[in-house]
Amino acid sequence: MAFRIIHYINQFFGGIGGEELADHQPETREGAVGPGLALNRAFNGEAEIVATIICGDNYCVGHQEEAAKLIASTVKRYNAEALIAGPAFNAGRYGLACGLAASVAASQGLPSLTAMYPENPGVEIYKAGAYILPTGDSARGMGKAVADMSVFLLKLLSGRKIGAPETEGYIERGVRVNAFYEEVGAERAVRMLLKKIKGEEFRTEYKMPVFDRVRPRPGLKDLARATIALVTSGGIVPKGNPDHIAASSARNYGAYNIDGLADLTAETHQTAHGGYDQTYANEDPDRVLPVDALRKMEKEGRIGKLFSTFYSTVGNGTAVASAKKWGGEIGAKLKNEGVQAVILTST
């Protein structure tokens, strides 16, 4: 008998539609759909997708509780023995949805698995609660992802012990496991230290978590005299996108003057951001970058000044290393210009 699997996918891979249907309410279909067909073939009769949950990415991210309930009840209704989600590649909202689906099933005690690009935000949020396999950043990596996922899921279902991430190939979960060694800890520690002193490669047994955090700055004391700057990862740029900021995996950011501008309009500005439905941001860019509201508050004396320049990039699949570098540069420029506070907007 083949193991009974539930597969979670989004509206795009479910063949329902693209970004314009990202609000699509979840539906369940019998059998495999889209990438599930390839997964089923790779299972080679040992497991079978009995039902597919198809859900719009915006719906899942915006209604996490409802989505979690539906996933849990679908698993029960089909007497599923495992859940597989995605692969999501570098699609941020899809990654979050797949992470949610896999961790809901895991919390029900079911083997579960998803796969995505290591920089997908779903990894950071869900890696502790679910097995996540690394994939390429786009659907070009589908073939390898399907092969890796099917092998790993069958291994989970076999009940065999899953070893360390580096040997099994899943993304490190930050879970510590007790193990026995012939050598006592003191001997291992001295050996490690000697290697370190000699400049040789060594492997720690107890990784320290890396938190990228900054200490919160004190609050503004005098709003009515403060210069406030706008920064966005929502891709708002002057009409025509003069710096050619890419719709995804941006390679640059732009600085744009808004002196004397009371309002962003469809004639003056647009979004360069891919991955979300641009209709509303292009109709009225203030929906992403609230120049109109802040300009009014400046006139009313509620704030001292709206800074003359806003900074913008596209946060869609952008490498974390680039974002970090640009954030540092933008922060330094604003500080040099005497800006006292920043409003950062994200889509």
Binding site: G92, R93, L96, P121, I125, F211, L220, Q340, T345, S346
Partner: peptide, 18 residues
Amino acid sequence: MPVVHMASIVPISKSVGA
């Protein structure tokens, strides 16, 4: 220089450290 992050997906905002 305090920064406020206005974001649609709060878990991402938290995980990037706002």
